[in-house]
Design a protein around this nucleic acid. Sequence first.
DNA 1: TAGATGCATTGAAAAATATCTATTTATCCA
DNA 2: TGGATAAATAGATATTTTTCAATGCATCTA
Lengths: 95, 95
Amino acid sequence: MIDCVEFCKALADDTRQRILQMLLEKEMSVSDIVAAFDVSQPTISHHLGILKQFGLLSSRKVGKQVFYTTNRDRVVECCGQLIAKFDAEEGVCEG
Amino acid sequence: MIDCVEFCKALADDTRQRILQMLLEKEMSVSDIVAAFDVSQPTISHHLGILKQFGLLSSRKVGKQVFYTTNRDRVVECCGQLIAKFDAEEGVCEG
DNA sequence: TAGATGCATTGAAAAATATCTATTTATCCA
DNA sequence: TGGATAAATAGATATTTTTCAATGCATCTA
């Protein structure tokens, strides 16, 4: 069971949602991602870290580079837990 | 189509998620809600306003009191849009 | 009508978050 | 090895959000 508040905080940022969406389609290195946005590399790394905490992103290191990709299934699973929190039969789930 | 970032921001607070959950089960007046939490009445009104912006809550005025209740279907619908953003076929939805 | 009650709004302070620059760490290559 | 490149971390600042006290507005009732 994820912490639904923390999960929503993780998605409560435009840059992070755009990163997630971009990495659905293709794997990208950190510098690729930085190039696609108008913020600094440390800021991107910060956002990647937040998304990775929830397993929303996977990463693999190749030489100096780190490639990230979105874990689509995990995103859907977490959203499902969010729905369940508010759509559960009475008395179910983290009351 | 909702703004998924703003929707996540609306849910990115523990008090607001607890309010939403509490009002799934029963309709409550603002003062009832205030009594159930450890924050001030203006703070509760502020949270109610944020949730209401997305139609996640309905309200009706009865005399001096305002009663709120959670729109379960709307919550589910918004969560569904969130999932769709990250689980859509390529090229679908708000690019 | 006057006072009281319930809730929303305003304005300011406190807390949390996003962002940057500078630095560190790891890896590559000449 | 020495220099260069990629990414993470640290520390500081800026912005946003949460919160509260004070106030305003509507409604009830005595």
